[in-house]
Write a protein that binds this DNA or RNA. Structure first.
Lengths: 189, 189
DNA sequence: CCCTGCATGTAATCCGTTACATGATTGG
DNA sequence: CCAATCATGTAACGGATTACATGCAGGG
């Protein structure tokens, strides 16, 4: 149910069409709340039906410019101040880690190295984004940078964790092949 | 589509019923891939239809014990080695941050403080989980700890970021109320 | 005149959540 | 015998993804 509020939030900065919002999304909110074009137009329709936004003006090519209503502003405030953020996460990346016993140590390490790389690339990408928006100082951009910092830290964490995990997996490999309870030829399988 | 693989992975450790798997989930995979009872039973049925698992034996109270087949093991391997982890995340927690301009500085800080607390609590919880599983040294637990470490780092990051963000918001508040372009009474609204 | 970009929509499908529904067994 | 636990399923609903479908307007 958060796409509603993402749209309300964007429209609170000023009126815009679905198309405008779609582009705005890409450079900002998509990082924390991705949405497709279909979804966006659908939600705009529902928001208008609910009276949280209105069509302010219609332009060329069927363009509809939406503006947030008082009811919409109230709903946004309510969501921001009183609704607890959901804290559900799904990481199939970590799911695989649980099953490392099913693949070879080398494959596990290759997997983790790939994760390390993914983290590093994301850091690079976000750093670029940061440079692109460095000159703006409107509220949306200022607070966007606070969110961006989260992303930077997250990806650095990802990268560093992967490096740590590689060492951990290597250590476990050594200890289990040295383990007198298990045959030493297991490490080569 | 990862619930399939979560179940295949668990069943690779040994045969189990839906009920067993449900409980196993709670203490391990639910942290990285939550699933409900409905979903789990549904997926088990579909996995059996697809021939990736089989009903090994039926017990009392309609209990069905499932075991993974060779096809299932192959599918798990394929998923682990060749399917790229999806990297889609949705954080309504961060979405709100983008719209901090719509609420007062004090409310924004209260929000961040709450996030800081949430992170700290999660760290405590995961630390407890770590202590509970400290004595096991099977593969699943060993690698589970590697995933747990990710969770610990993640929540520490969350906590530290929130603390940093509070300072950032305070700094922005001071600079905008000192800003000659904007009226100084804005900070009190 | 045609291509690119602007602009909006619908339909099918999948996954996840919530709630409902049922019944067998075991231990106190 | 009754409550808790074991154990499995179905149905309704909502949100997200993908693909499809359409058409106008402006610049070269």
């Amino acid at each position: 149910m958060s796409l509603r509020h993402a749209l309300l939030g964007l429209l609170s900065e000023g009126p815009a069409s679905g198309y405008d919002l779609l582009k705005l999304f890409d450079n900002s909110l998509a990082n924390v709340w991705p949405a497709t074009q279909s979804q966006l137009y659908g939600e705009l329709g529902r928001l208008a039906d609910a009276g949280l936004i209105t069509v302010q003006s219609e332009g060329a090519r069927g363009r509809k410019e939406y503006a947030v209503t008082d009811a919409g502003r109230a709903e946004l405030r309510h969501w921001m101040l009183e609704v607890k953020p959901t804290w559900i996460q799904r990481y199939d990346m970590l799911l695989r880690v649980f099953f490392f016993g099913q693949i070879s140590t080398d494959d596990a390490i290759a997997y983790l190295r790939e994760q390390q790389r993914t983290g590093a690339e994301a850091v690079d990408h976000l750093t670029e984004v940061g440079q692109m928006i460095a000159d703006y100082d409107d509220d949306f951009t200022v607070y966007g940078r606070v969110a961006l910092e989260w992303g930077l830290r997250f990806n650095r964490l990802h990268q560093e964790w992967a490096e740590w995990a590689i060492q951990e997996v290597k250590a476990h490999d050594r200890s289990s092949s040295a383990d007198p309870c298990k045959p030493s030829d297991e490490h080569g399988a």
